[in-house]
Design a protein around this nucleic acid. Structure first.
Lengths: 223, 223
DNA sequence: TTGTCAACTGTCAGTGGCTGTCATTAGCCT
DNA sequence: AGGCTAATGACAGCCACTGACAGTTGACAA
């Protein structure tokens, strides 16, 4: 790799890290692109040569994680039921995603920024839009697995949408908690996914399975 | 009502109508706030005194519709299962929403603008964020119905999230079709809601119920 | 090594969304 | 009629973002 290439990568990395640190410290809206550029010792114009927008920088890490998850879904054996495949892909990609993130920035910073996303309307909106795009991509993967046409059969999009909805509820609850660590997110995800069937049943007198503000890890070590 | 009050209402109405018409005609991003203000013969500053943002004007009508839906959910008899209550509230509020919208702008314009939302990333993002806020509100209503605590029991948020997810998939598909009328949306909604259970089942060899690009109204007149 | 090309960067100017300020206008009330 | 106050317009300024142009620096061949 040439010197030029190396410098470029260093600049992008520095910009990314500076951006996320500033976002996590003082907030997204309170951080101007000029601030980020100054922190990385480049001009504002240069920032926009590396990132299409302020938002683009904010979701750079998420993009990586998402692509890993899609790969994991693709790698699932054909026999599994769609919803199982999604859940197992999530479990399987967990560590892979962790490594990929850590290659760019400390995981601690990523988690801290995740809470900024949830508490910043503009970022949350962008996050949700990106999530639906992801869902469309995954719906096509699921449809392909089952030999179906996404436009002819509603089910692929519906399962993926349901799965995604539960994931988002989980993220939301998790980010509002005090123990917003990786383990807590994994446990919460499992708990909420377990609630899909009970929640859709008319009979809510079934097991309530209280799992809320308190730190009540239900299941772990599923890797 | 005084003259002042009347003039204010007229101005807001004119601004709203001008905005939506311009959005529908030439696109959201292609329309500047100055354009809207000019069309309504006021200054740009005045536009921002009536609407907090360009986006705020875009979702003014949606806000009305959503509040009607929430009311409808609240009005559902306590005996119904949560998912049924949501679906029936939707059916029940259909006409009420229509009237409320028509009071502000022609329904045709509203439907046309709906497609602009889906095709404009910034608007779609805002729409999704607003949708999750709505879901939180409805989750609390559902929880109250069942005598549960939203933070202690995951199920209220999960059902609502699932319902919302299906609604959004429906909107998306609907807006991409040629016959994007009210009746088509109603039919599509019913079709997709019917697919929740089948989609979550592992067995996808069941009834495929092909309903896609083609104009294939499945059920109507459920009012 | 050196000269040339292409890539990278900084500077500057400009647009659009949005806000604060202040003077002016116009409805309201006595 | 005249004073009070809400509504408005005009102006200045911030921030995200973009296009244009010029200067700098790595890459590569002679």
């Amino acid at each position: 790799m040439g010197l030029r290439e190396l410098k470029k990568q260093r600049t992008r990395d520095l910009l990314l890290r500076s951006a996320l640190e500033l976002f996590a410290e003082r907030g997204y809206e309170e951080t101007t692109v000029d601030d980020i550029a100054d922190a990385a010792d480049v001009s504002q114009r240069t920032f926009f040569r590396y990132f299409a927008s302020k938002e683009d920088a904010a979701f750079f890490v998420s993009r990586l994680a998402e692509s890993r998850f899609v790969e994991a879904v693709r790698a699932r054996p054909a026999g599994e039921a769609p919803l199982d495949a999604l859940r197992l892909a999530l479990v399987a990609s967990w560590s892979t995603i962790g490594e990929a993130v850590e290659q760019l920035i400390p995981m601690e910073l990523h988690l801290r920024f995740y809470r900024v996303i949830e508490s910043t309307p503009a970022l949350l909106a962008a996050h949700l839009r990106r999530a639906t795009e992801l869902e469309e991509e995954i719906a096509r993967v699921i449809a392909a697995r089952e030999g179906l046409d996404v436009d002819a059969d509603p089910r692929p999009r519906v399962v993926v949408a349901v799965f995604g909805a539960v994931m988002r509820v989980t993220e939301r609850i998790w980010s509002a908690r005090d123990d917003a660590g990786l383990a807590a997110l994994r446990d919460l995800t499992a708990t909420y996914l377990d609630q899909v069937a009970p929640a859709l049943t008319g009979d809510w007198r079934g097991p309530a399975l209280a799992e809320g503000a308190g730190p009540t890890p239900q299941r772990s070590n599923e890797t």
